[in-house]
């Protein structure tokens, strides 16, 4: 009875096994890179936001020259500066310029109607337009605003750059008064009017394809032969037919037959 059993601890051995330690360090490394990646993303986003605020600050001092409509240099710089903007950033720019006492359109140095009209501006011309000196400037800004991308710049595809055109270049905001279009002149002609109406509906000359217009003679694809509703005797519809169906007349013979069957069953 004097031999000793070697004592073996039932507790967990202290310290992780080498493979566990390895797995842990790998996991830590993975988490670290993931965290770093996200941190970089957020930092990039912050950098862009600062850049946008800086651009707004630069545009606050526009136009740099005293001309009423800024010169070419200002215009081209303006296009470059608003590349990263979202439409909401343009709203912020208008707000800032109004606070500064300038028309919301950066190439115009007049004072906005919120200043010139005073407190009545909002109900006289509306909330958006009161930040501009005139409706023309408001239209120009709206024209540029529609060209901006809704996607924030840090989520955009870097390969694709949006091209912004200024309304002065295209000539979109040509001063068209309502009187011009409504008063018919001497050589007013119906075909022209119809053409104009078609343009108004959004139909272009090229969209009109005569091949697909319905012709006046109708061609059925499969010939349908008209059949008169067949009566019992192949003649016209009889007066006894119900919705084209002639009920069978119960003859005496029929009754006899049934009776015979019944008697057979009874047997």
């Amino acid at each position: 009875m004097a031999f000793k059993v070697p004592v073996k601890s039932i507790l967990k051995q202290p310290g992780p096994r080498p493979d566990e330690a390895e797995a842990k360090s790998a996991r830590d490394q993975k988490n670290y890179t993931l965290a770093l990646q996200h941190a970089r993303k957020i930092q990039a986003q912050k950098d862009w936001q600062i850049r946008i605020v800086n651009a707004i600050q630069v545009l606050l001092d526009y136009p740099t020259t005293s001309h009423q409509t800024g010169d070419e240099v200002d215009a081209s710089k303006f296009i470059v500066l608003i590349q990263p903007f979202q439409p909401s950033d343009l709203d912020a720019l208008i707000e800032e310029r109004v606070v500064d006492g300038k028309c919301g359109w950066p190439l115009c140095s007049n004072e906005p109607r919120s200043v010139s009209l005073g407190k009545d501006a909002e109900w006289k011309v509306g909330k958006f337009k009161m930040g501009f000196c005139s409706n023309a400037c408001a239209k120009k800004m709206a024209f540029v605003k529609t060209q901006l991308s809704e996607i924030p710049v840090w989520e955009r595809d870097p390969g694709i750059s949006i091209s912004i055109t200024l309304p002065d270049v295209v000539g979109v905001v040509a001063p068209v008064t309502k009187d011009d279009s409504s008063v018919p002149n001497g050589n007013y002609d119906v075909a022209n009017a119809i053409h104009e109406l078609a343009l108004e509906r959004g139909e272009k000359a090229t969209s009109f394809r005569p091949n697909q217009v319905m012709l006046d003679q109708i061609v059925e694809k499969a010939g349908v032969v008209h059949k008169p509703l067949s009566g019992v005797h192949g003649a016209d519809v009889s007066s006894t037919a119900i919705e084209g169906y002639e009920p069978r007349v119960k003859t005496k013979v029929g009754f006899v037959d049934e009776d015979e069957e019944g008697s057979e069953d009874g047997d």
């Binding site: 600062i50 605020v53 707000e95």
Partner: peptide, 11 residues
Amino acid sequence: PTSSALKIIPS
């Protein structure tokens, strides 16, 4: 203050 003005506070 305007929203873009507040953005310079953290800067």
